[in-house]
Design a protein around this nucleic acid. Structure first.
Length: 572
DNA sequence: GCCGTTTTCGGCCCGACTGTTTTCAGTCG
């Protein structure tokens, strides 16, 4: 975890406690500040050292001093104090669906409950309905919420949830009452993980759509079912929210439900400053109530004096200001990536043959791929030694002769040893088109060692790129300790490419680090790390990271044609 | 707590659904 997310965590918890205390505005101030800091590309420690904390939007005198205190002492007196002030268990109870600060506090005050376990016991014994405002139905819902809380998975990987989204949207499109059907929320923003699924439908007959929605197969509970809005739980703990709006409001609803929340709050504020009101139904004049826009999402932005903002950018990370000044990046397009530069085959730990991987690439319309199997010291993956790699290279030559419209590049994902050297000899590395170096072991080394190890690899004449540079696995493993700023600096200086690994649980570099890399003049590339033909379909996930990292095509090496790419890495 | 080209005080996004307190508070996104 970076220092930035650590600080954001402290501010967030303070915000949470203020929320429980009913101090909503103060709560939001802390949460906003946390969000801003979590999405900074600069290091919070450096900003503090330069005395520039208060230049961060949302950070004023108080929060700046809290951050300073935390950075210098490693603790935060306010947070300690707030934790003491809050009755025990209240934050825990608030984790349950349907239990907010008011309910949690009352449960604590009136029944002395301090944990979810105690709440469950009380509900089972029917003790909740004795409290004013609680009935049998509430008791039942709380028991269900406890079950769901226990079985609920963490956020879902985007790559894992996209197929489910396609299933749901095509099911809803099967209803003739549904005009437009679209996944919105973090899925439309292509965030790396998705919490709840949000589905937006435009229709003149909303109740028909709601009816079809609540009769989807695989529903374990219908949480709510209104005229235009419904929520259900699917198996595996996936929660799906549906919203139905009339066609004339579709654009406004699309804007609203795509979020992010922070992005929307800022837009609504802008609308208000212009005497307008923005809701999911449209953009209206505040006084007359006259509707100015609503059917078309672009019109909403246009009437606020903004160019259309790509969903991937809508995180309140400067995109609104950029749109206002005409300074939005021209994001790399999903169709602009011409090749996949990180592919495994059954020569090492993949399942596909060279030919199968090549065939898949052709089906996808790619112009080239780089075969980058593991090298010999990665024994568990049947890494290739010099001899077998030579053999594979000859096989690729033969395949290239009969492949039309696709170039197969000879590459390797070469293991970086503990001392920073590579595990294959220069004589073979020199004959490859693409050498990607990567760390696969020794994650327990300290930051200095890891950083030196990568920098040494970057300085190796044969190395063109670094794969999954931080080693993180989403929700399973934080990256190895690393001074990424120094690594990026050296990569920029040496002209070595940094990977955006498109595998759903890697996405490494992530969006913030990709943005940082782009800002520092590093060229990146996208590789799927596919071990089967179908995993090459992960490519768009990598493009999404690049887009969320504000990258233009010029910063992404595999938007070049094959000649351009080879020139770029000094092999042309 | 933060913020300011209407403001250094007084705002802070806006609306749907549920359950229960018979008119609305609480929660959520």
């Amino acid at each position: 975890m970076s220092l930035n997310s650590e600080v954001a965590g402290v501010l967030n918890e303070i915000g949470e406690i203020y929320e429980a205390n009913g101090d909503l505005f103060r709560s939001r101030a802390f949460r906003t500040a946390a969000q801003r800091i979590a999405s900074l590309t600069e290091d919070i420690g450096e900003i503090h050292a330069e005395g520039k904390l208060m230049e961060i939007p949302g950070v004023g005198r108080s929060i700046a001093s809290i951050i300073g205190e935390y950075l210098e002492t490693g603790s935060c007196a306010l947070l300690e104090e707030l934790r003491e002030s809050l009755p025990p268990g209240v934050l825990e109870l608030m984790q349950l669906e349907g239990v907010g600060p008011k309910t949690a506090l009352r449960l604590n005050r009136e029944l002395g409950l301090t944990s979810i376990d105690q709440l469950e016991a009380a509900a089972r014994e029917g003790r909740l309905r004795g409290v004013r405002g609680f009935g049998a139905k509430t008791e039942e819902n709380i028991l269900k919420a406890i079950q769901e809380h226990r079985s609920r998975l963490e956020r879902h990987l985007l790559g894992g949830i996209l197929p489910l989204i396609r299933g749901i949207t095509s099911y809803l499109k099967g209803d003739e009452a549904a005009i437009e059907v679209k996944a919105v929320g973090s899925a439309r923003r292509m965030a790396e993980t998705v919490g709840d699924l949000d589905i937006l439908v435009s229709s003149e007959r909303p109740s028909m759509v709601v009816k079809r929605f609540t009769s989807m197969p695989n529903i374990t509970r219908v949480i709510s079912r209104g005229r235009t809005k419904s929520t259900v739980m699917l198996g595996k703990g996936v929660r799906v929210d549906l919203r139905v709006v009339p066609p004339e409001s579709y654009g406004a609803a699309l804007q609203y439900f795509t979020g992010s929340k922070e992005h929307n709050i800022k837009l609504r504020k802008m609308a208000k400053e212009r005497g307008l009101k923005l809701s999911e139904y449209g953009l209206f004049e505040r006084d007359s109530g006259k509707k100015i826009a609503g059917e078309d999402e672009r019109e909403i932005y246009r009437h606020l004096g903004l160019g259309w903002i790509e969903p991937e950018l809508r995180e309140d990370r400067g995109e609104i200001e950029a749109a206002a000044s005409g300074g939005l990046p021209r994001l790399v397009g999903y169709g602009e990536v011409r090749g996949d530069l990180h592919i495994h085959t059954n020569w090492s730990d993949g399942t596909g043959t060279l030919e199968e991987m090549a065939e898949k690439a052709r089906e996808m319309g790619l112009e080239y791929i780089a075969i980058c199997d593991h090298s010999k010291t990665l024994g568990i993956a049947r890494g290739l030694d010099e001899e077998r790699l030579r053999e594979q290279m000859r096989e690729i030559d033969r395949l290239n002769e009969r492949m039309e419209g696709l170039t197969i590049l000879k590459g390797v994902e070469c293991n970086i040893k503990a001392d920073g050297s590579l595990d294959l000899s220069s004589s073979v590395l020199r004959d490859l088109d693409l050498v990607i170096a990567a760390i696969h072991s020794g994650f327990k080394s300290d930051e200095k060692q890891m950083t030196e190890r990568l920098i040494k690899a970057i300085h190796n004449d044969h190395v063109s790129a670094i794969a999954h540079p931080t080693g993180r696995i989403i929700q399973r493993r934080r990256g190895y300790p690393l001074d990424l700023d120094r690594v990026l600096e050296e990569a920029s200086r040496q002209g070595v490419l940094m990977e955006i690994n498109a595998f759903p649980d890697r996405l490494d570099l992530n969006e913030l680090n990709s943005r940082k890399a782009g800002e520092r003049g590093v060229t990146l590339y996208i590789g799927t790390d596919a071990h089967t033909p179908s995993q090459m379909d992960f490519l768009p996930l990598g493009v999404a990271v690049a887009r969320r990292g504000w990258l233009e095509a010029g910063s992404v090496a595999n938007t070049l044609d094959v000649e351009g790419l080879l020139r770029r890495i000094g092999k042309g």
